[in-house]
């Protein structure tokens, strides 16, 4: 199957265990082109672990993840060049300037020597990093380091973008900028998966909001709903109640711990 036209991200019954703890429990998630999906959950719900599985950073104990139709375990450069990600730590080598970091990210993401400089100029301008282009990333504030990480994820115009807590260190202007960038990427056909604690922010940008709790997707919320926060906690509480009842009745063999 060719990369173009294939589902950008498809995860089927993914399972990941760390010792006795089932961090991801039979999780299914599909992302279509042009779709923005928000993944929300409490701390430790499994958001980052799921994203790491989807990007082949860790190996699943069950199930499969594929990008553009190819299992991530065997996906090659042709698939990964269409993927941008920012998980945990931004792409920011402290000894390099902002422009050099972005050039490095562009080259590693598959842009040629001739393509990279133009893309770096574009993304520096788009992320508002012009005043910092020649500054070492070690001298940046936390927020600007996060902008640099986002710029590194976007510099090659990916068709699948996976962002873990991208607004955690951004100022309000940065949050608005990120929202514009995500919507712009989706308009041009990119699929975007974003995790966040900021439910109001998620509501503004997502087409679909998936709730993850104890490693399982426990439901979907309407992003334009009246009280997303209330609905989220209701869903989490109901999931806990189900788990308790299931446990009292003997539980399943793959029960979430």
């Amino acid at each position: 199957m060719s990369a173009r036209g294939a589902t950008p991200l498809r995860c089927d019954r993914l399972v990941k265990r760390f010792g006795d703890v089932t961090a991801i429990d039979r999780l299914d998630l599909h992302l279509d082109a042009g779709e923005v999906v928000a993944l929300i959950g409490l701390n430790g719900a499994g958001k980052t672990t799921f994203m790491r599985l989807a990007l082949a950073m860790i190996r699943p104990d069950g199930g499969t993840a594929s990008v553009f139709g190819r299992n991530v375990a065997t996906a090659g450069p042709d698939r990964w060049r269409a993927v941008g990600q920012m998980i945990e730590t931004p792409f920011a080598y402290p000894e390099l300037t902002v422009a050099e970091n972005l050039w490095a990210a562009a080259r590693l993401h598959g842009l040629s020597r001739s393509q990279a400089p133009g893309s770096v100029t574009w993304v520096i301008e788009r992320l508002g990093l012009g005043g910092y282009a020649d500054r070492r990333s070690s001298a940046l504030s936390l927020g600007n380091r996060q902008r640099l990480g986002l710029a590194s994820a976007l510099v090659h115009s990916p068709r699948l973008l996976i962002l873990d807590e991208p607004t955690s260190a951004l100022d309000p202007a940065g949050v608005v900028l990120l929202r514009d960038l995500v919507q712009e990427a989706a308009r041009t056909g990119a699929a975007v998966l974003v995790s966040s604690h900021h439910l109001d922010e998620v509501a503004r940008v997502a087409d679909r909001v998936e709730v993850i709790h104890r490693g399982r997707l426990v439901g979907e919320l309407p992003p334009r709903g009246l009280d997303l926060e209330h609905a989220f906690f209701e869903m989490v509480r109901a999931a806990d109640l189900d788990a308790t009842e299931s446990s009292a009745l003997g539980g399943s063999s793959e029960e979430v711990h």
Binding site: A56, P77, R81, V83, F91
Partner: peptide
């Protein structure tokens, strides 16, 4: 040590 290793996954450069 500085966790930039995460950026080297899911990349066009193996």
């Amino acid at each position: 040590a500085d966790r930039t290793i995460v950026s080297l996954y899911a990349s066009a450069t193996p």
